[in-house]
């Protein structure tokens, strides 16, 4: 009897470990998250490591509250869903997803796969090399696959998740194609878990649907932050993120800014100074052009 009690104590830890493993949670993180978990510090760009894939399983945001909620960061071997309600918000969702990809490439020299449908390219535009470059994501690391149908997109996505030569896969789907059901989502999640490649399912113009992703984010646009105290300008990209689903803990809402130079996230300041202030004042030595040149005219499309 005594012996069995003794064993039970040992088993308890083992059981916990097993449960954490089954649930795909890092050990020691309970749901709801306990503040006792030390959040990993913001990742600094360091010298490239030899084998990044074995180094760590989490991709921290570098934002304390958010990392804490996620149990340290986004899991690398998992599927994450990023969605935008409308087509026009799709650019914001693309931005957030691209920012995660950019974080993935820090200290990891493997390429990224971006697979998208023709319809998504038509509606939302194609990835623009110079823009990606400014954003902090090296376009040379990207392999872009444009497919005809969502079935093909899912197939390429799944193949990509199996490939150890990739740092991450971004799959972009528009609307609610029938092929992207719970089964397909579960398949992708399992592939990501087994392959160890992070999968980001970017869904444009999509309502919340049940899925097997480890996290699901709703991205809404938010006025950009400032850059170098130039309030009138459009500075760092910012988004309003709703963490709608989180297997590792509670959900929440965050306003994040993206520092494209340092490739890091930061909490956006609550009030945007640019909005509370009008544009720069007119210089005294220059006449107001708009007034002297005539009234404001609306140009219609001709032909």
């Amino acid at each position: 009897m005594r012996a069995s009690v003794f064993m039970a104590g040992d088993d308890f830890a083992g059981l916990r470990r097993r449960i954490a493993e089954i649930e795909g949670r890092p050990l020691g993180v309970e749901a709801p998250p306990s503040p006792a978990v030390p959040p990993q510090g913001p990742e600094r760009p360091e010298a490239p490591r030899l084998a990044p894939r074995r180094a760590e399983k989490l991709l921290p945001f570098g934002v304390e509250g958010l990392d804490c909620l996620l149990g340290g960061g986004l899991r690398r071997n998992a599927l994450h869903e990023v969605r935008a309600e409308t087509t026009r918000a799709g650019s914001a969702a693309t931005g957030f997803a691209a920012a995660i990809l950019a974080r993935l490439t820090v200290g990891d020299d493997r390429p990224l796969l971006w697979v998208m449908e023709e319809a998504a390219v038509r509606e939302g535009g194609h990835p623009h090399g110079p823009g990606l470059d400014r954003f902090g994501l090296d376009p040379g690391r990207l392999i872009v696959v444009v497919t005809r149908r969502p079935e093909e997109t899912l197939w390429v996505f799944e193949e990509g998740l199996r490939c150890a030569g990739l740092a991450g896969v971004l799959g972009e789907i528009r609307g609610h194609p029938r092929v992207l059901d719970l089964t397909a989502s579960r398949r992708l999640a399992l592939r990501a878990r087994d392959g160890g490649v992070m999968g980001i399912l970017l869904r444009q113009a999509a309502a919340a649907e049940p899925g097997a992703a480890a996290t699901r984010w709703l991205v809404e646009p938010r006025p950009a932050g400032t850059l170098d105290d130039f309030a009138a300008g459009i500075g760092r990209p910012a988004w309003r993120l709703h963490l709608e689903r989180n297997r590792a803990g509670a959900t929440g809402r965050f306003d994040l800014e993206w520092d494209h130079d340092a490739r890091s996230f930061a909490l956006a300041p609550l009030a945007t100074p640019a909005l509370s202030r009008p544009g720069a004042a007119l210089p005294a030595d220059r006449p107001d052009l708009a007034r002297t040149a005539g009234t404001v005219v609306a140009y219609r499309r001709t032909g």
Binding site: G95, H126, R134, L227, G233, I234, D259, H260, D261
Partner: peptide, 10 residues
């Protein structure tokens, strides 16, 4: 830092 003067999607 330079501003992001090119769009992400074109």
């Amino acid at each position: 830092a330079d501003p992001i003067d090119r769009p992400l999607r074109l």
